[in-house]
Amino acid sequence: MKRITSVLIAATIGLFAPIQNAQAAAEFNLRFAHFWPPQAGMSQQFKAWGDAVEKDSNGRIKVEMYPSQTLAKAPKIYDAVVSSIADVGATVQGYTANRFPLSQVIELPGIAESGALGSCVFQTLLDQGDIADEYSETHPLFVFTHGPGMIHTKGTAVKTPEDLKGLLIRRPTAVVADLLTGLGSQPVGMPAPQIYQSMSRGVIDGATLPWEGVKSFRLNELADNHTDINLYTLAFVVTMNKGTYESMPADLRQVIDKNSGLAWAVKTGQLMDEQDKVGLAQAKELGHTITTIEGGVENPAWKGVLEQATENYLSQNGATARSIYEKIPALSKNCRN
């Protein structure tokens, strides 16, 4: 993990090196839209990004946070950035189906065992140009993933794929929907902020989320069974309105550039990992049933179905998607070094 550690150190040092301009009133007020609740760890991470931008610009850029879908609903955040409703947005690529098929290769089973690693790999794919064309409508700042996405259910323990048959399980994206369908459940699409109400009303029997999401969206209050398997790692993007970025003078664009890329991707993935620990500890404290699938996605009861779902996705999305998938092991090795 030397590379991940080194970029985290670089990001920390960067926080204390603002550009040397005289203090002045804000020239740009950036509206930052996202869907996490204000108290969530991710909200604090985005605030830290805003604070860094404000400090590095000597106050010439101000960042106003709009959490909890207050500026745009989760599936509409990317388009809100495109249309200048928001200047910056953080969202899930797969909330708009078929728009980011190459980016969503990162969601396939077993790709990364942590948010920090997944984020390093994902950002490297963006930096190397493999997925850059999918973001041509905006100015992407960084991409990241959460840690392992798992299955969380109310009243039903899921130990084998057979236990999923007939269950209505929330899925975040079409990629995860295909995985769940192959395993025998009935996937129900919805963004994370809708899960609590849907489960409390019996609309769904469970949900797929990392432990971070279970904590952030209060699922430990409802789901009492958790199946620990690295089913997927969700793709996220923090992106900026292209016109807003291009209208800035060169020195302020440099501030944005400094607070973009690999360092912030890895820091955000690491925050996801830290929040995973908190969500898991909370479930244990509540006495929930946690089933760990031995061998994870390599477990014989799960492996065949998940491999087939992976092959189906790659076949549907062409040679470029397969090429990206095949280069991920080498990128993962590099990110660990």
Rank of each mutant, 00 (worst) to 15 (best):
E298V: 10
F236A: 06
T227H: 01
P210R: 00
Q23E: 13
G59P: 02
P187W: 04
T70P: 01
A263V: 02
D130P: 07
V81A: 08
D224T: 08
K165S: 09
A207E: 04
G202K: 01
G115F: 02
N225W: 03
P101H: 03
V143A: 06
P187Q: 03
G295W: 07
Y135A: 07
P18E: 10
T239Y: 04
S43C: 08
A11H: 01
G129Y: 06
L168K: 15
V237S: 13
V88G: 04
W264D: 09
R322S: 05
M190Y: 00
Q308N: 15
V143Y: 02
D51N: 11
A192C: 02
Y325R: 12
I131L: 08
H139A: 03
R201E: 00
A330V: 09
A26S: 14
Y325L: 06
L8I: 15
G287V: 05
T320V: 13
L164Y: 10
K284E: 15
A97V: 10
L183A: 11
E212D: 09
Y78A: 13
F32Q: 07
V82H: 08
M150N: 14
P161H: 08
M199P: 00
D205S: 12
V92W: 00
W36A: 15
D79S: 13
A52Q: 14
G243W: 06
A10Q: 14
P193T: 10
V53M: 04
R3I: 14
E294C: 13
W211L: 05
T289Y: 08
L306S: 07
M199R: 13
L30C: 08
T181V: 11
A10N: 13
G147K: 05
D228H: 12
